[in-house]
């Protein structure tokens, strides 16, 4: 059970970490200055969540730290979802990815605040407040882009089409999900799907965006340690200093 709990914390921590990394890449590139500040706030919240979950994972593991898990772990040991690994293209893509994750986080954390694991419960209580705001914000943008101009609608539609296949993973149960559910630590991923779909579909439909066909595109996922080709590059960049100077502390 302990191993599964660690695995679950890594999934949550790594997913927030990598999404925050993608947001960091976008720094100083937003369409308007106000948006640069706003999206950075989201990035900072996610980084905080990542640190909390990784700290807990490190405690459970023993003999390691959140920093070591971030900067000295190998790719195959990461448990982040494929969705957050996707590279930034345009604002519509960044925003749509954020929205899909915000909906997922909102539904997930609203369940995790009644977890039987005290630490997960504590982290989630803080996270849910942040996530509610993230969702409110990205939901506004979905409307602006969906109903804004023909171009913005098209770009958002393309982004949703491209991202849709990655949402499959969010609701697949693996052995970790089953163990977490059995011990009343977390819900089954598959149990989140209908709420998520309802939330996403109603927002997208309102914004005149069509829901893509469901595709199962992979049988092996980030949560199992099988990643997209993108993750290697993210880690190469993120881990570069600690790996280059193994004896140094920062």
């Amino acid at each position: 059970m302990k191993n599964e709990l660690i695995d679950y914390c890594l999934r949550l921590g790594d997913s927030s970490l990598i999404l925050s990394h993608r947001i960091a890449e976008y720094c100083s590139k937003a369409p308007i200055l106000e948006e640069d500040l706003a999206i950075t706030n989201v990035g900072l919240d996610l980084l905080g969540q990542a640190e909390n979950f990784l700290t807990y994972a490190a405690e459970l593991k023993g003999d390691t730290t959140a920093d070591l898990l971030t900067f000295k772990r190998r790719e195959g040991d990461f448990r982040c979802l494929h969705l957050v690994q996707t590279p930034n293209t345009d604002f519509a893509f960044i925003l749509a990815r954020q929205f899909l994750m915000d909906c997922y986080h909102q539904i997930l954390f609203s369940k995790l605040i009644s977890s039987e694991d005290e630490t997960i419960l504590g982290i989630s209580k803080k996270a849910i407040k942040e996530v509610n705001y993230h969702l409110d914000r990205s939901n506004d943008w979905i409307k602006r882009l969906g109903l804004g101009t023909t171009e913005s609608n098209e770009r958002l539609q393309n982004a949703v089409n491209d991202l849709w296949m990655y949402t499959d993973e969010l609701f697949i149960d693996n052995s970790t999900d089953i163990a977490m559910n059995k011990n009343k630590i977390a819900p089954l991923s598959s149990n989140l799907k209908s709420d998520w779909l309802e939330m996403v579909e109603s927002a997208l439909k309102f914004s005149e965006i069509k829901i893509p066909q469901e595709i199962r595109y992979s049988l092996r996922y980030g949560k199992d340690g099988f990643h997209t080709e993108y993750l290697g590059f993210i880690l190469a960049e993120m881990q570069h200093l600690p790996l280059l100077y193994p004896d140094a502390t920062w």
Partner: peptide
């Protein structure tokens, strides 16, 4: 890159 977003 942000022009279309501002227009939207």
């Amino acid at each position: 890159d942000g022009k279309w977003v501002r227009e939207a």
